[in-house]
Design a protein around this nucleic acid. Sequence first.
DNA 1: AACATGGTCAACCGCATTATT
DNA 2: AAATAATGCGGTTGACCATGT
Length: 319
Amino acid sequence: MGRQPCCDKVGLKKGPWTAEEDQKLISFILGNGQCCWRAVPKLAGLLRCGKSCRLRWTNYLRPDLKRGLLSDAEEKLVIDLHAQLGNRWSKIASQLPGRTDNEIKNHWNTHIKKKLKKMGLDPLTHKPLPPPPPEHQQSPPPAGVSPEPRPPSPPERTTEPPEEKTPPAPAPADSDLGGDGELLLSKSPGFCTDEVPMIHPDEIKIMVPLGGDQPPPPLPASPCGPAAVSPPTTSYSTSASSSSCLTTRDEESPFAFMDMDLPEFLFQFQTGLDDMVDARWRDCLMQPPPPSPPPPPAYEDPFDSCLFQRNGGALFSSY
DNA sequence: AACATGGTCAACCGCATTATT
DNA sequence: AAATAATGCGGTTGACCATGT
């Protein structure tokens, strides 16, 4: 009946990825592009399942990933989109270039949920939370009647209307958003995080600091040389921001939209939003910020500021 | 200084969906 | 049309880290 789990083979490694594994995966994708993930581990010499490789790449190693906390604008966008889409993180992520569904999901669960609750909003429905009922008379709603109309897309996938999976298609994507809440999602140039366009090795080489003349921070040389990787076609500047890194690419780049100004992009979403949520959120943002920890270091460079930190500097040190 | 607690996030799991045979 | 394989997606877990006591 059910098919075998992809990772049940003995000998397959699980858990956190090591810098060496990262490097193997990167080297492989740089050399071969993205192709059938099932075959990647074998071909790349990794004791991982293809799924794990795909996840690692899409959520962490992809060169076009932004890093760091979501900006206020991004956060607001996530909230607005969540009000429209529900827990369809992939769809939401597709509207935030450089962000992954996993990242947004985590951010939602750890930050935004709390913020909404503090604002008196139900993170599920985006409607005002009912006042705390007196404990003694908590009458459950009649069976079959939900107390609050759920947002268009409840988490239950089984109840979801069939959904189109091809955002770029001219067909009215996200047609389930039609009506007043009609968003312009389908007009946005985003792509689902896991629907990463097949990247040709040459394309990646432009973005990844391969064998750069100056790897970001001074770090010990990696035990794995760049031998398996084609020589760089473009030198990499450590001062390049993530966007400028990407702007080295031509207009037809699948990542060209990364240059889009987010506020401008946001403007498209102003209509059809839940006004109340919108206003509340704006109020929240406009209020003098409570004493909060300083923002994290800017992530001008996705490689030096983040990957190096998280991987102890080993990952790209040889590129 | 040592321990406890809570927050964060990378990674896994399992089901759904789509593609292929 | 059915079976199987491959991939996508969202929920959940657990290790790590920061902060508080």
